[in-house]
Amino acid sequence: MSCVAPEKISVRAQSRPALARERARVARELLADCRFCAHDCGVNRLAGETGLCHATADARFFLAQTEVSDELELIPTFAVALSGCDLRCDFCITGASSWNPRAGLGFDVATMAKRAEAALNQGATTIMLLGGEPTIHLPAALEFVSRLPDSAKLIWKTNAHGSTQARELLDGMFDVWLADFKFGNDVCAQRLAKVSDYVRVVQENLLWANDHSELIVRHLLMPGHVECCWRPVAEWLAENLPEVKVNLRSGFWPAWKAARHAELRQTVSDLETRRAGEIAGEFGLNLIP
């Protein structure tokens, strides 16, 4: 007898826009004691205090356009990138805007929602909210969702370093979580992104996202990190999320402050790309383009 896995069912008593409006209000109040990400700062962003992300209560964005560079099943996507991030990846390709929450322009949710709807009418199939890291701007992100059509396919592009509180606020808001699993161990995470306890937090977020929405996991191959980072990521995914869609990206670009680390001053070699593919095959991962 064959058994078909049940579809993930999201039951909402209210429409998504209505629920998002309520959640946005709660999220804005929670800025008074910000614990949106695993840094758990507890600062009062409404009073002008800032935590490790340096973000205030106001969100800004540095990019909003229809793009075709993401996973094929998600494109064309209208991508909105919010300024600021809670991680400090030295190799971040958008480092200048991701490390600076004051970069870009003020994020006016009504105007941006109109642009997103126009993009959908012109052929975009999804709307993607990213950063930096959108989790640090949860109130604005939820306000944005509250202005979007209930039927729109929404993508939450995240570093998977959010807190339990953030996940509760996000539950049912986005159709797809597109989540990074960047480092396979805490030593590399600390050295390259100045974050502690990385692996446990990301794994917790991925397991949750897989239970509450569709999940796509991304791993950006880094030169010199195939065995220490990709292999343990691949192994964990095979053991814990064996069916999950995985996008293995080989186009590492030595950007921003990557030169601080000798191994990151180059692109990924053909040999490393091949080896990474072999590891994916070894663990039977469900790779997607």
Binding site: E71, T94, T125, N247, R249, S250
Partner: peptide, 17 residues
């Protein structure tokens, strides 16, 4: 090709972290 006319084939090498 699939990026020009999405939903047809395989990916372009690129990064967005």
């Amino acid at each position: 090709a699939p990026r020009v006319s999405p939903r047809q084939a395989s990916p372009l090498t690129h990064q967005k972290s």
